[in-house]
Write a protein that binds this DNA or RNA. Structure first.
Length: 102
DNA sequence: ACAATGACCCAGT
DNA sequence: AACTGGGCCATTG
């Protein structure tokens, strides 16, 4: 477990229930605004798939991660809808659900 | 130390 | 809207 990954996971846990964050938000939160790609990597290697709310993390367009580990796209979609987030065509409205605290 | 890879982003065509 | 190329950063072989 690298230090970078810890930072990413900690940041991910801060995303409130029923809201989402972009890879950029996470990157910015941990002090590496341009490491968005690395953030994606870290989440992919996520050791605690369920514990860490990585399903609340989407790309800059609000699109869900295609290679999501837990039950794929559908899994992430269901997890989000279970929190009251409307997912249209595997995409969420960032203007509405993006966590403001980031 | 170097090259390649990936759940990314942005601008240009 | 779809495709391309360049840039970014951490991890891995």
């Amino acid at each position: 477990m690298t230090e970078f990954q810890n930072l990413v996971y900690e940041a991910a846990k801060l995303i409130p229930f029923g809201r989402v964050a972009t890879y950029q938000d996470i990157a910015r939160k941990i002090g590496r605004p341009k490491a968005t790609r690395a953030v994606g990597n870290a989440l992919h290697h996520n050791p605690q798939m369920i514990i860490i709310p990585c399903h609340r993390v989407v790309n800059a367009q609000g699109k869900l991660a295609v290679h999501f580990g837990y039950r794929g796209l559908k899994g992430q979609k269901e997890l989000l809808e279970r929190e009251g987030v409307k997912v249209i065509n595997y995409q969420v409205d960032l203007e509405v659900y993006r966590a403001a605290s980031l």
